[in-house]
């Protein structure tokens, strides 16, 4: 059988040595396999340094690391919001690196993404913003504004809002929400998307500690109920230990430890925060 990489051709950046002849064999519970992932920016130098990472279905993962460790770059690279320089990524049984634009969109539609902030379109209503989650599967104006959406979609969106406790704010404008409310709306939008995996890049880093804890518990609880795997980055060890089953430590663009959260301790944390 032909290797998929060979068939599609090599127009995208590949490892310099062409090291990834055969993609790793997918295990049945495998969600994501990353090998030799590299990325550097002219201004910042090497940001991802040969990252290797396996994610398993139904195992929530926290990516911890100091500012600049490469967490965001890694998460974004997984769905090629940032184009990696080299390496191989298999996500949901799909080789990501060689996907053309429309296949990549299809794959992205199966993966939720919550950013640290500015997730929402400021001048639109909360309900419209939640309905945007359905753009992963619905084309056209019906997924653009709540006023144009079908009754079914509007009702679904209200259910999602209810799950995050914000049904009463459905018609409020998104730019009139508090930080915690905005992130909860972003979670509702992710629910609306019905993803198989959710990536979250420091989803509560711009909230105060109390709101941060509230949003994280809500987020992880909902993802657990939905049986969706959550991978989030954080610089808070407390959040990592409390909300993830597995903790992956990053430093200087590489992974420095990868453990069950029960087995993670102070010395691990020191390794990621101490200066080189």
């Amino acid at each position: 059988m032909f290797d998929n990489n060979v068939l599609v051709g090599d127009n995208l950046a590949k490892p310099a040595g062409g090291a990834s002849l055969a993609p790793p064999v997918a295990r049945p519970d495998s969600l994501c396999q990353v090998t030799n992932l590299c990325k550097s920016f002219p201004s910042a130098g090497i940001v991802l340094d040969n990252v290797k990472l396996d994610l398993t279905r139904h195992q929530s993962v926290a990516l911890v690391g100091a500012n600049g460790a490469g967490k965001s770059t890694l998460l974004r690279s997984l769905v090629r919001l940032i184009e990696p320089d080299a390496g191989d990524i298999h996500l949901l049984d799909t080789p990501v690196m060689n996907l053309g634009a429309s296949k990549l969109r299809k794959l992205r539609s199966r993966i939720g993404f919550v950013f640290q902030k500015h997730n929402l379109v400021p001048r639109l209503s909360v309900l419209s913003n939640v309905i945007h989650g359905s753009q992963a599967r619905i084309q056209g104006p019906r997924a653009w504004y709540q006023g144009l959406a079908t009754s079914q979609v509007r009702a679904d969106a209200m259910t999602c809002l209810e799950r995050v406790g914000l049904a009463h704010l459905a018609s409020r404008r998104a730019d009139q929400l508090s930080g915690g409310q905005s992130q909860r709306v972003a979670i509702a939008r992710t629910l609306m998307q019905r993803p198989e995996l959710v990536l979250a890049d420091e989803p509560v880093a711009s909230l105060d500690p109390k709101a941060g804890t509230e949003v994280m518990s809500l987020f992880t609880e909902i993802m657990r109920q939905e049986k969706v795997t959550l991978v989030f980055s954080t610089h808070s060890l407390d959040h990592a230990l409390a909300y993830a089953e597995r903790v992956v430590g990053m430093k200087g663009g590489g992974i420095v430890f990868d453990k069950r959260s029960r087995q993670t301790d102070k010395t691990d944390i020191q390794t990621i925060y101490e200066t080189q």
Binding site: V79, L81, L104, R105, K106, L107, R108, S109, R110, I111, G112, F113, F115, K117, H118, N119, L120, V121, P122, R123, L124, S128, H132, G133, Q135, A136, Q139, G140, P141, A143, W144, Y145, A186, T190, Q193, P195
Partner: peptide, 23 residues
């Protein structure tokens, strides 16, 4: 950022323009 958020979940270019940029 809002347009990128939609891009990250596989929204179409038209969807991004009409639901994130134009508003």
């Amino acid at each position: 950022a809002p347009a990128e958020a939609l891009n990250s979940i596989g929204a179409s270019r038209t969807g991004m323009i009409f639901s994130a940029v134009i508003p």
